[in-house]
Design a protein around this nucleic acid. Structure first.
Length: 547
RNA sequence: GCCCCCGUAGCUCAGGGGAUAGAGCACCGCCCUCCGGAGGCGGUGGCGUAGGUUCGAAUCCUACCGGGGGCACCA
């Protein structure tokens, strides 16, 4: 019996009990269910339904709990139901009913953990979107890992997800990038406000290799812009691909200007009287839609402001049929939330379609002290540096496993020197152990059994119940946009497996006869391996056969 | 001044109102006659402060303290 089925059973039983007593079954709160108590003495599962429903039902919590426990004890699959504390009901399942989870996993395979709450939702997930003026650094790498994992999690729960990267390939930062390239090509120092990393000289050299006459051409800046930015695109795309993060759409801001989409968006806002002219500029009445202040959309020099592109981009996303537009941004862009939602509202759209996830910044740490990354000082840590140091799996995992709400400290020396400390290896090791076990079982001709009622060891029960949690973990990771929950769950699962392995012999020893217990345990192992593999896949981390 | 995020074990971090707050690393002590010791078992050690809501608060609310990031006709 899965936790979800058990929760349904508890709710149904509670509803029956209330109805039988002439009480309103509508008193049952929706947001309650069963959970696994910390203390194993409190049962396999516990429910607080009596506590939650007592007040509305007009009954003392323990009295309601008593009625409900009596009712639950009569239901199939429930071995015992006991009242505890202020009105908890502690449940124990019959071993064969609980083992049904294993059968479920074996039948569902790679789809175990999937769900359909987001079926029909068409989600645009925009992340990374770093400016094409340099290689991806640690910040972008964090979004590359967590954004990709979020996309996988949402897909697993039924959403149609389009991963999108927005290249800001126009505007002031591109102008400075081009000036820097030209200066490097001419052997001049880094211009004021320019970019100074070693990669600038390398790209400048590559531009000259492609276009030998670039420096003397009247189209010099245009050539450096076109070729140089193109090379930057290629490098970013290649880095992301090597990192295991692939995008469905690479969107170029410039295309919105070229197609007239920006102009059309501005005209539309003017026509609906959501722009006004003041001080030589056109302003969006964003403060009327919840933003802190009004924002210039057309600057007084007649050029569109950055937000003009954003507005056109949002309209483009909506025109492509997305009903949820998620933006993953760094903490230094948190001010965008208000204006993006205000822009959506000004366009007559529902601001809830815009969802901005703000992630805290990544800091570089050395010897326990923060290091300020500076391209000039040459201590910028790139995605490539991190992957070179620890590998893709460890890099992705360490970036995903904490909440994006918390700032992340990366100590590259520590990671390099002691990469085995990364919990990813703990999880992967569990999978490799299971793969090894499967090979040995195959050699012995042992096949998985189905007599799950034999799995009565406490470590077996823990492992089965932990496996049963996976779908709910994925569902909450999707709902809360917190893929780190999957990583933390996998650590719990790996731990439950290692404990089981330590206490419960799976394969027959020596010339010992094969029993149904051996075969049932093997089935449990197959299920555990499946869930570990499913979870790791959701993080974009490999599930190795051997390590 | 205003806005966002954070403050949990020596360190890095989990804990979306539940019972005795967890993991990894670090430190101390144990466990290999056979399935992978990259493992298991035990120990040391913690919710920034003060109020409030609740049967129940690390979790929700308020104030304060401390840290990070924002508050452009830059992107």
């Amino acid at each position: 019996m899965t936790p979800a089925l058990l929760a349904d059973l508890v709710r149904a039983a509670a509803s029956d009990v209330l109805a039988r007593r002439g009480l309103d079954a509508a008193a049952l709160p929706q947001d309650m269910g069963v959970e696994r108590p910390r203390n194993p003495e409190h049962g396999d599962y516990a429910t607080n339904i009596a506590l939650r429903a007592a007040k509305k039902a007009g009954v003392a919590p323990r009295e309601l709990a008593t009625w409900l426990a009596d009712e639950l004890a009569t239901r199939d699959g429930i071995a015992s139901a006991e009242i505890a504390g202020p009105g908890f009901i502690n449940l124990r399942l019959a071993a064969d009913a609980q083992g049904g989870i294993v059968a479920d996993i074996l039948a569902t395979g790679a789809a175990f953990g999937n769900g359909d709450e987001y079926a029909g939702r068409n989600v645009n997930l925009e992340f990374v979107s770093a400016n094409p003026t340099g290689p991806l650094h640690l910040g972008g790498t964090r979004w590359a890992a967590t954004g990709d994992a979020l996309g996988r999690v949402l897909s697993a729960r039924g959403a149609k997800v389009t991963r999108e990267y927005y290249f800001n390939d126009t505007g002031g930062q591109i102008t400075r990038f081009v000036r820097s390239l030209v200066a490097a090509a001419e052997g001049e120092p880094v211009p004021e406000d320019g970019y100074g990393g070693d990669y600038i000289a390398e790209i400048a050299a590559q531009v000259l290799a492609v276009e030998p006459g670039a420096l003397t051409s009247p189209e010099r800046d245009e050539i450096f812009r076109r070729v140089g930015v193109g090379l930057m695109f290629d490098e970013i795309k290649a880095d992301l691909h090597a990192f295991g993060t692939d995008f469905d759409v690479w969107f170029h801001e410039q295309s919105l200007h070229d197609s007239g989409a920006v102009e059309a968006a501005v005209e539309r806002l003017k026509a609906s009287n959501n722009l006004y002219f003041a001080d030589g500029a056109w302003w969006l009445r964003s403060s009327e839609f919840g933003d802190d202040k009004d924002r210039p959309v057309i600057k007084s020099d007649g050029q569109p402001a950055y937000i003009a592109g954003d507005i056109a981009y949002f309209l483009d996303k909506r025109a492509r049929g997305f009903d949820l537009c998620i933006y993953m941004l760094g903490a230094d862009h948190h001010g965008y939330t208000g204006r993006l939602k205000a822009a959506a509202a000004a366009l007559g759209d529902d601001p809830a379609v815009v969802e901005v996830l703000i992630g805290q910044l990544v800091n570089l740490v050395a010897d326990g002290k923060p290091v300020r990354m500076s391209k000039r000082a040459g201590n910028v840590v790139t995605m490539e540096d991190l992957v070179d140091a620890v590998g893709v799996d460890a890099a992705r995992y360490s970036l995903i496993r904490s909440s994006v709400d918390s700032p992340l400290d990366v100590d590259l020396d520590l990671l390099t020197r002691r990469s085995n400390d990364n919990p990813v290896f703990y999880v992967q090791y569990a999978h490799a152990r299971l793969a090894s076990l499967a090979r040995n079982a195959a050699d012995l001709g042992l096949t998985p059994g189905r007599e799950f009622g034999l799995l009565v060891h406490p470590r077996e029960g823990d492992l089965i119940r932990t496996l049963g949690e996976f779908p709910a973990v994925v569902a909450s990771a999707a709902e809360l946009r917190e893929p780190h929950r999957v990583a933390r769950y996998l650590e719990t699962l790996a731990s439950a497996y290692h404990k089981f392995y330590d206490a419960c012999r799976v394969l027959p020893m020596g010339d010992e006869a094969v029993t149904e217990l051996h075969r049932a345990r093997l089935a449990l192992c197959v299920a555990a391996r499946q869930v570990l593999a499913n979870g790791l896949a959701m993080l974009g981390v490999s599930a190795p056969e051997r390590m």
